[in-house]
Amino acid sequence: MSGKMRYVLAGFAVGIVVMAGLAAVASACNVLVVMSYDDTYPWEQEVRDGIESVLNGRCELTYSYMDTNRYSDVGPQKAEEAYNLYQQLQPDGVIAVDDNAQSMFVVPYLKDKTQTPVMFCGVNAEPDVYGYPASNVSGMLERLHIFETVLFAQQLVPNLKTFAIVQKNSSTAEMLVQQIEQEQETYPAKLIGHYRPTALAEALKIAAELKTQADVLFYETFDKISDENGQLLTDAEVVPMIAAAFGKPLIGNNAYHIRDGVLCAVIKLGEEQGSVAAQKLLQVLGGTPVSDIPIERNKKGKRIINVTALRRFGLKPKPIALQGAELIETGK
């Protein structure tokens, strides 16, 4: 047998051993997933789909939901419950989703305090806000495709020159301020403001006032904003109200907002966040040091157009603007 052939066979054998070792680790692993929000929130469902696309059949998954989008004051208690669950499970790895899971759970309980690898995703803040990367923490940042969405909207809405960003006031909204400050000078239309109301009545008043100032509104999220009766509303309920008050197209960043009536978006993908975090965790469980796992930011985007909104506003874009975009109707 030639020396070259021996090297090939030896390399093949090593590869089999490494793959078998990874499969053995993965098949036996237990992973705790801590979500910042509730299990009905569409974003969390997208992230969960991404995690499960990688880990189903390889790891046993346990989920803990902190529910901070509905009840912000319960966050510390829910984080403590998640830590108690962590102690009970003694998982091989943890995936922590969105910012509140970092500030309330990972940083106080796990960062640099345990050997358990933690992969985060859906994080809007800069990583150094949480002291990341840490000895046992890495993951994936989340950034909105604001530039890309406005540029896309200009292909659909003639003479789009100004826009405003609106969303429910929250810690996540405050974190978006930094992204906006970093990018604002590059936006293809003038940003006239970033508005963060705390209640529905205030949001509707702002939308009505912006009708004479902005050509479109970038709708981020108003999920679980309260109405005059203290009822917590979903985005599916709020989008039509904001659209009616503004009277012009809304643009956004999530697929479920497009289904609710927003005109278009270059969406960020929760599935990308979840699958990348899961892949990173598998690398660590297979023997890669956490220090060798770089922090990334989301790269993928998908263009979506609501054709119901197109018809409502009498918009007739050039065929090239529709190429490669997913076309959906409100409520479907």
Rank of each mutant, 00 (worst) to 15 (best):
N84E: 13
N84C: 00
L85Q: 10
Y86L: 01
Y86D: 00
Q87F: 02
L89P: 02
L89I: 11
L89D: 00
Q90I: 14
P91N: 07
P91V: 02
P91E: 01
D92V: 03
G93E: 03
I95L: 11
A96H: 09
A96N: 06
V97W: 03
D99W: 06
D99Y: 11
N100A: 04
N100S: 08
A101E: 06
A101M: 08
A101V: 07
A101W: 09
S103A: 13
S103G: 05
M104W: 09
F105V: 03
V106P: 05
V106M: 06
V107M: 10
V107G: 07
P108I: 00
P108H: 04
L110Y: 01
L110T: 02
L110F: 12
L110D: 00
K111R: 05
T114W: 07
T114V: 13
Q115Y: 11
Q115D: 13
P117A: 04
P117M: 09
P117Q: 12
P117E: 08
M119P: 09
M119G: 04
M119H: 09
F120S: 03
C121P: 06
C121A: 04
C121D: 05
G122C: 10
E126G: 06
P127F: 08
P127H: 06
P127I: 08
V129L: 14
V129F: 15
Y130F: 15
Y130I: 10
G131S: 15
Y132Q: 12
Y132E: 14
Y132N: 13
Y132T: 11
P133M: 10
P133C: 08
A134Q: 14
S135H: 15
S135L: 15
S135Q: 15
S135T: 14
N136F: 02
N136M: 07
G139F: 07
M140H: 12
L141N: 11
L141G: 10
L141A: 08
R143A: 12
R143Y: 00
L144F: 14
L144Q: 14
L144I: 15
L144E: 12
H145F: 15
I146E: 09
I146V: 14
I146A: 08
F147Y: 14
T149R: 14
V150R: 02
V150W: 07
V150S: 12
L151A: 14
L151Q: 15
L151G: 10
F152R: 11
F152V: 13
F152L: 12
A153T: 06
A153R: 06
A153E: 08
A153D: 07
Q154L: 09
Q155E: 14
Q155N: 13
Q155L: 13
L156S: 12
L156H: 05
V157Y: 09
N159S: 14
L160E: 08
K161C: 13
K161Q: 15
T162Q: 09
T162F: 05
T162H: 04
I165C: 01
I165K: 01
I165H: 01
V166E: 04
V166T: 12
V166Q: 09
V166L: 03
V166W: 02
V166H: 05
V166A: 05
Q167G: 12
K168Q: 03
N169K: 14
N169I: 11
S170T: 00
